[in-house]
Structure formats: C-alpha cells, structure tokens
C-alpha cells in the first residue's frame, strides 16, 4: 500500500491515520503535527525521507501563487530541503485547480449565488478561490491584512489583491513563518476581541483558512455558510453551537474530518506520479474524483 505522511506545523491534537482510495489504489494517510516546532518538523522530515511515497507539508505553504507568480516562503523551503529523495508537496497545486473549480461548481449548482457577500479570511494562500469569487461577481472582502496582520483594511478587488501581493510578498516570505500565520498552540487560541465581528456580520459566506475563521469566529452565525477545509467533528460542533447553517468542505470528509489540501495533493502524487506544475497536473487533480462536502448543520 502506498503511504503518504503530512508533517504539519499545526497542533498534534489534530493527528490522524487512515486510508483513502484514489485512482483505484488504497493509500495510507498519516498526519503528524509538530506543534509549531520547526526543529522537530525537520527531524521528522529527515526520518521520513525515502521511507514513504510522498510527504505533505501542513500548517505552512511552501508557495503562495498569485496570478501565476509563485512566492516561496523561506521557512517552508528550509523544511522541504530536509528531504532529499521523497517528493514533497504543500497543497498549493490542489488549491489552485480544485478550489477554483469548487467555487464555480457551487455557483453552477446554485448552492451559492453572486449576490451573496463573501468574507475570504485569507486570499493570498488560496488565490484560486479568490479568483473564482471575484470573477463570478461576488462582493468579496479579502481579509489578509485584517486577520493575519491586524490592519483593519479590507481588500475589495482582485487587482488590489494582486497589487498587495507584488508589493508585500517578495519580502514577507522571508519573515519567520510564525509571524505570518498561527502555528502550533497558537492555532488553538481564540480571539475574544469582537473588533472584526462586523466583517463576519456583513458576510453571507465566510471562506478560507479554518484556523483564521475559528480564531475570530463570532458568537452568532445564523444563516451563514462557511467554505473551508481541515475541520474536525469538534469544529463542526463549535459551528453548530454558533448556529451556522451550512458548512462546505472543499476536501472530502473521511473519518469525521476534512483533509488538508497538502494531504490530498500528496495522495494524488502518490497515485499518479504527476507533480504539481507538470502539464498533466490539472487532469490528475480532476481525475482524482475529489468531492466537496455540503453539510446542513441546522438540520443535523
């Protein structure tokens, strides 16, 4: 059986071990969280090199790809360079192809409609999703500056998002990753500061990275829809308690949790041998028969 392991900078509380079927192959999928400890992640990556089929990097993106231009996060490169032989992926290739497609499918199926207002908590790490929302005419607030940097400035267009990316990312990718994104126990922390509640209140759809969503989650989510992934049963209970109407996870739910895109990407690479960036990549993602999951929490 092929085996993929996701080494995550996130909390080890979210570790899991299961098998999935892809391209008629059974693939063992393991997640190992390092609680934000870069050194521990490096040791783990060196140990896994040459012992598993593909390694996923979780809790960190190696590349932020904005309109075809890739910005490499230096801390992620340091992690990836610990591995000499085994392919290492970060989920960027799945996000770019699959999440763009998912948003378009949700529109086609009228599960979401363009007159709904969207809060995309972070767009620079999921440009495909952002692009789909803006192209389809959704009034979309990209909250990268708000939720990652606590600068109360909503980004309102794809052009502005691209401009910020060109200006900020070449330097910001050099920063310690923990300054850009919560890692380890920081992922478990909840902000009880209601300062950004209004952005949630104004949105019909909240989308993007679940750690940002969870951290700033307001008490009341009646009538709202969240599009995200990496949710667990506990997360679903939390969202239900806050009266969320619908949860859509862009990656399949197995054993009660939706996987990170790095895990799915690692499984696709293990099953097909096609790497992100290769010309067959888009076909490899589409051929994986991924399914998003729509859950009505108000009817559970």
């Amino acid at each position: 059986m092929k085996q993929v392991v996701s080494v995550s900078l996130g909390s080890s509380k979210r570790d899991h071990d299961t098998t999935i079927w892809m391209y008629h192959q059974e693939i063992r999928v393991t997640r190992r969280g390092c609680d934000g400890d870069m050194d521990r992640a490096m040791i783990m990556l060196r140990e896994l090199d040459n012992r598993v089929d593909v390694i996923g990097l979780g809790g960190i993106d190696r590349y932020l790809v904005v309109n075809g231009k890739a910005y490499e996060i230096l801390d992620a490169r340091r992690l990836a360079e610990c591995v000499q032989s085994t392919p290492v992926v970060d989920g960027t290739g799945v996000k770019a192809v699959w999440e763009y497609w998912v948003i378009n499918q949700l529109v086609e199926q009228k599960i979401i409609v363009p007159d709904q207002k969207v809060l995309l908590v972070s767009a620079l790490d999921r440009f495909g999703m952002a692009q789909a929302f803006y192209e389809r005419g959704f009034a979309t607030v990209a909250g990268d500056l708000i939720f990652a940097s606590h600068i109360d400035y909503p980004i309102l267009s794809l052009q502005e998002l691209e401009k910020f990316a060109r200006r900020l990312l070449p330097e910001m990718v050099k920063m310690p990753f923990a300054m850009l994104y919560p890692t380890g126990s920081a992922q478990e922390q909840l902000s009880f500061d209601p300062i950004y509640d209004r952005y949630f209140a104004q949105a019909d759809i909240v989308a993007g990275d679940f750690h940002f969503v969870r951290r700033y989650l307001p008490d009341e989510l009646s009538g709202k829809l969240i599009i995200t992934n990496t949710t667990t049963e506990e997360d679903r209970r939390l969202l239900q308690d806050r009266n969320l109407r619908t949860l859509i996870t862009t990656t399949p739910v197995l054993d009660g949790r939706s996987f990170g895109t790095n895990v799915i990407e690692a499984a696709i690479v293990a099953a097909t041998g096609v790497m992100p960036g290769q010309k067959q990549w888009e076909d490899a993602v589409r051929g994986a028969e991924l399914e998003y999951t729509v859950t009505r929490l108000d009817r559970v």
Partner: peptide, 13 residues
Amino acid sequence: MRLDIITLLIWGE
C-alpha cells in the same frame, strides 16, 4: 509587522 508593511507599500515593487 505593520511597520514592515508600511515601508513595503511605500517602496515595494
């Protein structure tokens, strides 16, 4: 972080 972003928005690119 904000100071960094300010300098990049003035002089970035």
